[in-house]
Design a binder for these strands. Structure first.
Lengths: 157, 157
DNA sequence: TTTTTTGCAAAACCTTTGCAGTTGG
DNA sequence: CCAACTGCAAAGGTTTTGCAAAAAA
């Protein structure tokens, strides 16, 4: 036994694809919900609720922030979305892609790098073996210095 | 070369011990500042600014929360204190002890386990080798399940 | 005496909640 | 039609800031 069971990846690829999942659970595909989903599809990485509400710099229609929060929460319950906390700012939301991903967050430049979850297996194993502790990087990702910033830090800063 | 240089541990053992460090930088050892320090010495683990302001359940004198925040920030600048973020709640503050410590935070029961920083070297190495990313667990510790909660989770939940 | 620090109040920031009205199915 | 949802406004929790009064050196 080396790895804990990993939940099956959900491979949603479009808003319509998600519609069924929403209705299956008694939910409704409203305009506001559609909007949150299209924002998440339009975003290239994890984004804040406020970025979504403001329309992602013109890429989608702006909307009410409390509805955005409620919809993100709803979609998270469906397994379609997840959120994580990086640094001092607001939480960041992303679609749960078809592939299991974890994130490495640079605390210096803010870059958020997605990595295949499986590539962190040795790391999880090392921590479990040494401390009897099972790390979960999904909600509170690994924070540190990306390659560029690590290099900068060694020289001048 | 396997490890990044680690900042020299500061081995403050009492409030008076820290007084010199404060004055060296033009700071003053006021009653409010003394109070924050004694709260940190009295605490058995990382505590929130509000816990300190409220007097740590009667163990120290209560004080104004904005002064607590300002003093924690000041002491952090001196290298005497550090803070970390665990879960959704307020930030937690602790004295920078003589030994380098990192923390493992259980996202289920809230337990904060201190571990010797050196014991995480293999973990840091693995991440740096695989991703060219230098993790720093000081400010955003490793979150997951402690041994007890991991066991519970496997059985009933 | 001079500069730092305090205590209070108010604001800022992120997120949640109450509610009357709207809408999807 | 009716439960689910919306938009607005208000509140909640954490942290920061402005400012006149107090205190350390």
């Amino acid at each position: 036994m080396t790895e804990a069971p990993r939940r099956p990846p959900l491979a949603f690829t479009s808003v319509e694809d998600i519609a069924a999942a929403i209705r299956d659970r008694g939910g409704r595909l409203t305009a506001a919900r559609r909007l949150v989903l299209s924002a998440l599809f339009a975003a290239e990485g994890p984004v804040s609720a406020e970025q979504i509400a403001q329309g992602l710099d013109g890429r989608v229609v702006p909307s009410d922030i409390s509805s955005v929060y409620r919809n993100l929460e709803h979609l998270e319950g469906l397994g379609v979305v997840r959120h994580m906390h990086v640094g001092h700012g607001p939480g960041l939301y992303a679609l749960e892609g078809g592939t299991e991903r974890e994130f490495l967050v640079c605390e210096r430049c803010g870059r958020v790098e997605a990595v295949e979850a499986a590539r962190l297996d040795p790391v999880r194993d090392a921590i479990r073996t040494s401390f009897g502790f099972v790390p979960r990087f999904g909600h509170f990702p690994i924070v540190g210095l990306c390659d560029r910033c690590a290099a900068d830090e060694l020289s001048g800063s």
